[in-house]
Each structure stands twice: as structure tokens, then as C-alpha cells.
């Protein structure tokens, strides 16, 4: 099962075929696509909306599938899902903003942001991350977990590339550790 962008061209083709069928109203294809994309959507939502992950996942999936018919290039499915999901996750996270400043000693304990698998964050990292402002969390997810460049991250978030750069700088200085060791 695909859990996000990867290099396997067969998976991409399978996904594109499912997207085309779902766009034609094939509910079984839509269901299969939903099963395939949910882990990826969850992976994006969890660090951005840690207190409301289930809501963020549901609202992202609703937004994705409502708009699916309008997606012109089925091959661009995952990039498009990422854009929709990050926007929805930020929106959901902002609804219930409870931000408590990160303590310096908590930051010092962090050895690195990724776990061995490289796609999920440890509970400790998530805890610290959850106390960063939501716009910093979104930038970190796009730049460090998704590997987007500043211009692409800016497009997803609907802000200027310079804003992404300054937010990233601020977020990194809060963590004081590298995300990609």
C-alpha cells in the first residue's frame, strides 16, 4: 500500500487508475483510494494538529474526496492531497489553539526528530512540536518531513517564500536540533 509519494512507478500508476475510476463515480475505487491515502493524510495531520488529529484527518479526507472530480492530472494526486491536507490541518489546529511555550530543557533532550522508520515522529518529539505555533509546525512538516523546497512549501501554505524561510529559521532555532540526521 502506498503511504505517500515514493519512487514506485507501478504504485503511482495504480493510484492514477483508481483516481480516474473514482472521478467517474466508481465507489469501490473511491473506497480503495481512501484506504490507500488515509495513512499519508494521517502522517501529515498528526504533527500539524496533534490535539485534533482525528478531526483534521476526517476534514482533510472530506475536502479531498469532495474536490476529487476537479483534479485534472491523476498523476499529481499525492501532491494535491498534500496541499489540501496541510491547509485543512492548519485550519483545524487553529480552532483549538492551546499553545504552551517549549521549555529549553525539553528541547535539549531531543536527539533527532525522526524515528528509525523516518516517517513518524516519536511521542516526545510530537509533544514538543505540539507546542510550537501551528504555522511553524506546518512549515516543518512540509520542509523536513515532505522535503519540499521553500517555493513549493510557500505555494501549499499560500504565503511568500520569504515567510516560509523565516518561519523555518524560527522553528529550527526552537528545536536546536536537526530534523534529518
Amino acid at each position: 500500500m502506498a503511504d505517500g509519494p515514493g519512487g514506485d512507478s507501478t504504485l503511482w500508476e495504480t493510484t492514477a487508475a483508481l483516481v480516474r475510476a473514482a472521478q467517474q463515480g466508481d465507489a469501490l475505487a473511491m473506497d480503495e483510494l481512501l484506504t490507500q491515502v488515509t495513512p499519508y493524510v494521517t502522517r501529515l495531520c498528526r504533527p500539524i494538529a496533534p490535539s485534533d488529529t482525528a478531526d483534521a484527518v476526517q476534514e482533510s479526507l472530506m475536502a479531498v474526496f469532495k474536490a476529487l472530480r476537479g483534479l485534472r492530472d491523476p498523476g499529481a494526486f499525492y501532491g494535491w492531497v498534500r496541499t489540501v491536507t496541510v491547509r485543512e490541518a492548519v485550519r483545524v489546529a487553529r480552532r483549538t489553539v492551546v499553545e504552551r511555550p517549549v521549555e529549553p530543557d525539553e528541547l535539549a533532550r531531543l536527539g533527532g526528530l525522526r524515528t528509525d522508520g523516518g516517517t513518524e515522529l516519536s511521542a516526545e518529539v510530537r509533544d514538543v512540536l505540539s507546542r510550537l505555533p501551528v504555522q511553524y509546525r506546518a512549515v516543518l512538516v512540509l520542509r523536513e518531513l515532505e522535503g519540499l523546497d521553500e517555493r513549493s512549501a510557500a505555494q501549499v501554505l499560500g504565503v511568500a517564500p520569504g515567510t516560509v524561510k523565516s518561519r523555518l529559521h524560527r522553528a529550527r532555532s526552537l528545536f536546536r536540533t536537526s530534523w534529518s540526521q
Binding site: 473511491m30 476526517q58 469532495k66
Partner: peptide, 11 residues
């Protein structure tokens, strides 16, 4: 149930 709700929106 969430899955069916999403499908209902998509369809």
C-alpha cells in the same frame, strides 16, 4: 462510519 461519510461526500 467516518469512511462512509467521506464516500458520501465524494459521491
Amino acid at each position: 462510519v467516518t469512511r462512509l461519510r467521506v464516500l458520501a461526500a465524494g459521491l
